[in-house]
Write a protein that binds this DNA or RNA. Structure first.
Lengths: 226, 226
DNA sequence: GTCTATAGTCGGATAGAC
DNA sequence: GTCTATCCGACTATAGAC
């Protein structure tokens, strides 16, 4: 008997594996540090498959960027839907907004700590340091929508103007707290003596972050209703 | 008449200029993205001067790492001296520690916003993403000493245990707020619509950060003396 | 569509003149 | 010490067999 027809064609599978391998190596070594040879080898595909399916190494990199943006949207989609429900009129009591902010920060801390997303966040971070076309893709598809919603939630709880630059800066600083555990991961490990950031470590981090968010939100709220 | 003897020999000057050019290009494009040809051209030096003075491209990169660590120590030296004075017995009233924390955060925000330090912080950030030997140099010489002192100050103000991992995490999260304005600089620019982070922008950022630090410190203090 | 072989380019390091 | 010329290796992309 013939083996069952594969759910995805061989070509599709090759593309998928190349994108996965590319994300790993671009994440670890950066766009210039990773070579097409290594990517093809890790993906167990032919080197020539890269120009064939993606046009060029840069094309593969852009495909990775799209994958990252889509992954983030998939991961955050439910949270976004929930937030959009909250943000629709009528205006709710502040406590609802605070809970939603907690939810998204927990989700972010979780996402940023999972080992599956390590390479993803390394690529995003490098794009922030020297943006290419990939940055625009990820920013527009995923980062900006998230940022916008969080700013509105923060404004909803604190009573700040959601369009004021200052509200944006406050929100960005809060997000910085989560991000630092991914971006300055190496410093955290060296200072704490942890060998890795596992489930117990994530719990500690999440608790600290939620406390911080409450202190900050209440500080802003108090400053605003003074 | 002969021209006056140069204060630094020609060789020393070549080295200095190569390190400066290397910092710029390594910052902009990363270790693999920057080429020795481009570095030599920007430094207005011969390509062969790189292997001659630094052994190799990697040697030049390490020289840049040492330069960065020394630069940070020079910039933070006075602040460190001041902190060490505060931290020596006897124990002072908490307010003194809070002021010192303010001082170092203002200094950090300033440092991280100056255009001269842009490439410096890009290199440090990339080293955090994928650490090389350069990371160890910078961490040991500059980052760890700074971290240690800030943790002690935070402990001094809040009454937390300076050796507890949690205190470290709290401090790291606070530092993340400052760092995010450098590391996620691109997001800040896109979200605010700013074209660059100039003096007025730094002022806004510093004010927000100091507010946050006070809210966080007081939150920790209250939680600890409850 | 997939693979092998190879072309063409570029980057880092070196040899040797001055 | 400094510079030019060049080598060698590595990388991406392509041409063409299957």
């Amino acid at each position: 008997m013939l083996p069952p027809a594969p759910l995805t064609s061989r070509g599709e599978q090759a593309k998928t594996q190349l994108v996965a391998a590319a994300m790993t190596l671009f994440g670890e070594k950066g766009l210039h540090g990773a070579t097409t040879r290594d990517i093809a080898q890790l993906a167990e595909q032919n080197i020539a498959a890269i120009p064939y399916y993606f046009g060029s190494k840069d094309g593969l990199y852009l495909a990775v960027a799209h994958y990252i943006a889509d992954y983030m949207l998939r991961a955050l989609g439910p949270v976004f839907a929930n937030i959009d429900g909250l943000l629709a009129p009528p205006v709710l009591e502040p406590e609802r907004y605070r809970q939603s902010i907690h939810r998204i920060f927990i989700k972010l801390a979780e996402l940023l700590s999972q080992s599956e997303t390590l390479h993803l966040s390394q690529i995003i971070s490098r794009e922030q340091l020297s943006p290419t076309a990939a940055h625009a893709i990820i920013h527009q598809k995923a980062i900006a929508p998230m940022h916008r919603r969080i700013v509105k939630l923060v404004a909803g709880y604190t009573g700040c103007d959601p369009n004021a630059t200052e509200t944006l800066i406050h929100t960005h600083a809060m997000l910085g707290e989560v991000l630092s555990f991914r971006i300055a991961r190496e410093t955290v490990l060296l200072q704490t003596g942890w060998s890795s950031i596992g489930p117990e470590q994530i719990t500690v981090i999440q608790q600290v972050l939620l406390q911080h968010i409450d202190w900050l939100l209440n500080g802003m709220r108090a400053a605003n209703t003074r």
